[in-house]
Design a protein around this nucleic acid. Structure first.
Lengths: 342, 342
DNA sequence: TTTAGCACTCTAAGGGCGAGAGTGCTAATC
DNA sequence: GATTAGCACTCTCGCCCTTAGAGTGCTAAA
């Protein structure tokens, strides 16, 4: 669909004014805020047209207009200036400073989600890097106590993960070394997925070679068993989104929190977006969740050594500042990719 | 202060009814719900007395009574049945099941906070075990990539922690082994606190012995630098506390979220409680936080091998179910202590 | 000391009212 | 044909008033 210049201007004006004022936008408002050289009556005619197109709606007869999901969609696809950087130098510095303090991956993910929350005034979400396609680079066992062994695995991308294994019998340090050597020899350079698949076969093989070690093999298999594990997500501060006027009704807040605290909900939305394009915006009803029909989610991929490995997102009301959010996500994703890739 | 039997009964009734109904309690309600053999007028006289003592208050002239902080305090100290287990068998099984699934410490802490939230319908909080008094048992370095080394430290209690060190130059695996051997030799059995203090001196000593390793010593020092690190806390689900009627005003919710998302606030409250006794209840204004004056925090210590190492808490409105919360915390703390101590 | 009875107070819910915001239509104008 | 002034119309929101009802506190009697 193509809109005349004036209709585009007016639709753009409604979206912008609604985003900033959080109140239905009147013809009078548009003319005065944008210093347009047309009368309010003309604007009213156009508003009516835009409403007929399905881009705008009215809460009631004597109210101004608000964008519909379709209106936001048109705005986001056709009108919104991409490539514009809405971050101030102070904000950029703030981001870099916070990233500099963070020391481990959990901390980095946490900081990222908090930064997104703060800079967009909505909820920041981070989907941690997925490691399943990584290859095994190193593995090491450390005894925590008689019954527990800590396994640390390092992947080719410089990521790592850990599992605790409970054992029944004593396993000597020597045996642990032997096992890690075997695993490194057999699985070095193989993707974790493959390791997971092949492990079972290997177990039977080594079971006979190293009878004394039998009890531990099954535990090690669990180390690489990613299937049951969902992706890990980090949620930023809730206090900002709480202040958005759309959540002044507690009922809405309940919906929101029920939704975000069921981790698989956000994971599924973000995982879908991640496959589509670098930045993906899902608006209101497009989320396909009745309870969330007045929320939008913007998702931005991030990389590790050039490969897409995860995503960061903003969750806010459909009336969120899309352009600012995109800028924030872009900048943070780049910083994050850089830090992770080093 | 000592109350007559009847006054105690009535105060107890007010607290219970208010906790369950979330509405000011009338004389009529007390008599009918508790089947007391006295008239409402008598109850009214007693209520007035309890109000004069400062245990009860009225929202307005023609309303029933609600407990004051002082009233809750008296209830908690004198009236509340401790030693009663308010958990159903199903709830206990649920707790055990959830704990059985959890595989690493982060997961255990997360699950604990979620369980507390769910079972108390308030916010569960977990203060992770403090390791600073632990002694160093093992240390191991693994190269993540050219510029990053993962250090894993294990303590005598079977806990572990990790730090990532960024290095400028290449450090061979051989050198890493040497360094870990040195550290193990010098610091084995010393508390992390002491390691932290002595490290600086050692650095100068080894600086000369192993010139080639100089760049890494300072990084290792950072591994044991706990001072700047605050204790780690885990917050459970927010969706339950959100449904408590006291938070139907958004303003209250803002206060609450601003408070809980500033981590040091909860850390400081819980840390104070942890020193006092096994279970500590802080009610409303006792928190010393104006914004939180209608909330209470119950804190329960947990152990690792018999030593107090952290705490779990419930944060809810002052009108929370103290006895149920205590039961939940008690049971979970015991399970947690057991799992951690194994 | 307890209780019946009753006056009194305050809230919460509902209805009515008027101001104001903003539209949509009509007819005039460019 | 597009734009605009003018105006009737609609709906919300805040305000006030009223009323019902909940619950107290007091008084006087048991």
């Amino acid at each position: 669909m193509i809109l005349s210049d004036r209709l585009s201007t007016i639709l753009n004006a409604v979206v912008h004014l609604y985003i900033t004022k959080a109140e239905p936008v009147s013809s009078e408002m548009i003319v005065s805020y944008y210093g347009l050289d047309i009368s309010t009556a003309t604007v009213r005619n156009d508003l009516k047209l835009l409403e007929e197109f399905g881009f705008l709606k009215k809460p009631h007869t004597s109210a101004g207009r608000t964008p519909t999901d379709k209106g936001y969609r048109f705005y986001v696809d056709q009108l919104m200036q991409k490539d514009v950087d809405y971050l101030s130098d102070e904000e950029k510095q703030e981001i870099r400073d916070e990233f500099n303090i963070a020391r481990d991956y959990n901390e980095i993910m946490r900081v990222t989600s908090v930064l997104i929350s703060r800079l967009t005034n909505n909820l920041g979400v981070v989907l941690a890097p997925n490691m399943i396609k990584d290859t095994l680079k190193d593995i090491h066992f450390m005894a925590l106590n008689d019954q527990r062994i800590l396994a640390t695995m390092v992947t080719n991308s410089g990521l790592f993960f850990q599992k605790i294994m409970r054992v029944n019998c004593d396993i000597s340090e020597e045996n642990l070394k032997t096992i890690s050597k075997i695993i490194k020899k057999e699985f070095y350079g193989k993707s974790l997925e493959v390791v997971n698949e092949e492990m079972l076969n290997q177990i039977y093989c080594y079971y006979f070679k190293y009878r004394t070690l039998d009890s531990i093999w099954e535990l090690i298999e669990n180390c690489f068993n990613f299937t049951e594990e969902e992706a890990k997500i980090f949620l930023g501060n809730r206090s900002y989104i709480l202040r958005q006027p759309e959540f002044k009704e507690i009922r809405r807040l309940n919906y929101l929190f029920d939704f975000i605290e069921e981790e698989k909900n956000l994971i599924s939305i973000i995982s879908k977006s991640i496959l589509k394009k670098q930045i993906d915006i899902v608006i209101g009803s497009e989320l396909g969740q009745e309870a969330m029909e007045d929320c939008s989610v913007i998702t931005r991929q991030y990389n590790l050594k050039g490969k897409i490995r995860g995503a960061i997102s903003v969750l806010g009301p459909t009336r969120m500042n899309y352009s600012k959010s995109v800028s924030v996500l872009d900048f943070i994703a780049n910083e994050l990719s850089e830090i992770l890739s080093e």
